[in-house]
Amino acid sequence: MAQVKEYIGKVKPDWCPGCGDFAVLNALQRALADLDIAPHNVQVVSGIGCSSNLPGFINAYGFHGLHGRSLPVATGARLGNHDLTVIATGGDGDGYGIGVGHFVHTCRRNVNMTYIVMDNQVYGLTTGQASPTTEKDIVTKSTPEGTIEIALSPIALALTCGATYVARGFSGDNLHLAQMIKGAIEHKGFALVDVFSPCVTYNKHNTYPWFRERVYKLEDEKHDTADFRLAMEKAFEWGARIPLGLFYKVERPTYEDEEPALRSGTPLAKQPLQRTDLAAIMEDFI
């Protein structure tokens, strides 16, 4: 088995002390080590935001692209070379705000990859505005009178859009989080791990103690992860009790399974150029 240290990048994370994202980075490195996936076969793709800086802190191939656009790039990278373990990372603004259109369709497409969203319910890198998962009536820099919109439910959205592995972790429980990520990487299909990753600087409402008082684990309550209706019900459970763990998991053919070119084996990026068939196509145009 690989060692966690093999996945540690050359640059130290510059997140605020106490940021939930440290735990996510650590849990991801732990999961990769457990699964013994060589760093050069790991492709981490992100958007923009505090959490999207993660590829810079892990020893692997990385792609730090545009705000909200990690999933299309990750999809392309995976389809270009489906031998790679592809992991997309980002925050709630990146994934559920500006990039939500891609999220919807990537769930539907069921490309075999893992999407880890460090959900801190606030825009951190731009210093504290309301995000798509900010709860109603919360005061932020952009909502001095409190937010008007209700919060989006990432779990419910992923479920309705066809994600085949839908889980939630918490930066306050690193071992459990690593388990969720490990399960997501092992899962064949599009896996979402939404992580409560508190922003200690700009979210004074959803803090570590706030979560600790409320979270419980679905697996402790014999939750049936094959029951879609139950998963939807649990997705909306919020308030006094908030569930963590695996909400739903189903086997469905992946995009790679359904695409003949990918099913056949050799990744596109490794195929030599064949020109012999061009003549056959040209016959149609004489």
Binding site: Q43, V45, F63, G65, L66, R69, L71, P72, V73, A74, T75, G76, A77, R78, L79, G80, N81, L84, G101, H102, V104, H105, E259, P260, A261, L262, S264, T266, P267, L268, A269, K270, Q271, Q274, D277, I281
Partner: peptide, 27 residues
Amino acid sequence: KLGGFVVQTEDEIAAIGAVLGASFAGA
């Protein structure tokens, strides 16, 4: 027929995103 494929994406941003991702991966 040549071992390649087309991805119809949700919009043009995703289309060029997928192109950059696939090219980055070597295709």
